[in-house]
């Protein structure tokens, strides 16, 4: 019997198109409420432990929104979301890095946000540095990093935070060929370990690792 890792039941997510940034606009909402855009409408999905799911679809179909909902970054308007185990989202590589701080200092912050304990961080730091290949630059402020270096660091942190469920959003768009191969190898290792992986991409690439393909369509394609 396969254990569930992620359960989505009748999820609906609506975004504000306009935010009530000013008091004037906020007062106006009493007369005409903000229009909301439905991105995900009554969507259900079960992902089982150890499954590798690829979600594809055009821009604006709700791929990232789906990952954010699973990660608990945003809340759904309707429906139930359940996850089992540590969820590690990689929505945008290096998002939230502090430019003034060094690679290592940022790695500590990032790992803490992912829920890794202090002692553990100390233990995995050499592995993170090694995998990212940033040994000589780990004490350099992140503002001096190239975008490739930032993504390598972010991806390495996520890998060593011991995820049960790994959520990846378009992460293979960056990084060079070598790092890409290394990352794919790592995903294979995870797959063997029974880590659940949900990957979002524009491209419908075929990989032996992938168990299930899900294609989302744009709810607002006509516009």
């Amino acid at each position: 019997m396969r254990e569930p890792a992620v359960l989505l039941k009748n999820i609906t997510k609506r975004y504000y198109l306009e935010k009530p940034r000013t008091f004037k606009k906020w007062f106006n909402t009493f007369f005409s409420p903000f229009s909301k855009l439905t991105v995900i409408d009554n969507f259900s999905l079960n992902v089982y432990e150890g499954e590798f799911v690829l979600i594809t679809g055009p821009n604006g179909c709700g791929k990232t929104t789906l990952l954010k909902l699973i990660a608990g970054i945003i809340k759904s308007d309707k429906g139930i979301i359940k996850t089992y185990g540590r969820v590690v989202p990689l929505i945008e590589l290096g998002a939230g890095f502090n430019n003034e701080l060094t690679g290592q200092e940022n790695a500590v912050i990032n790992a803490t946000i992912l829920g890794v304990e202090k002692k553990k961080i100390k233990k995995i730091m050499p592995k993170i540095i090694n995998f990212s290949g940033l040994k000589d630059f780990i004490d350099t402020p992140v503002k001096r990093y190239s975008s490739g270096m930032i993504s390598r660091l972010a991806f390495s942190i996520a890998i060593y935070s011991e995820p049960d469920i790994l959520l990846l959003d378009e992460i293979f768009a960056v990084g060079d060929e070598e790092f890409r191969k290394k990352s794919l190898n790592q995903l294979e290792v995870f797959k063997k370990k029974g880590v659940t992986i949900i990957l979002c991409s524009h491209y419908d690439f075929k990989m032996q690792l992938i168990d299930r393909f899900i294609k989302l369509s744009n709810l607002h394609a006509r516009r």
Partner: peptide
């Protein structure tokens, strides 16, 4: 200031 962190990670 921490908008990026808020919209892309959960804490």
């Amino acid at each position: 200031w921490n908008r990026e962190l808020i919209v892309k990670s959960s804490f």
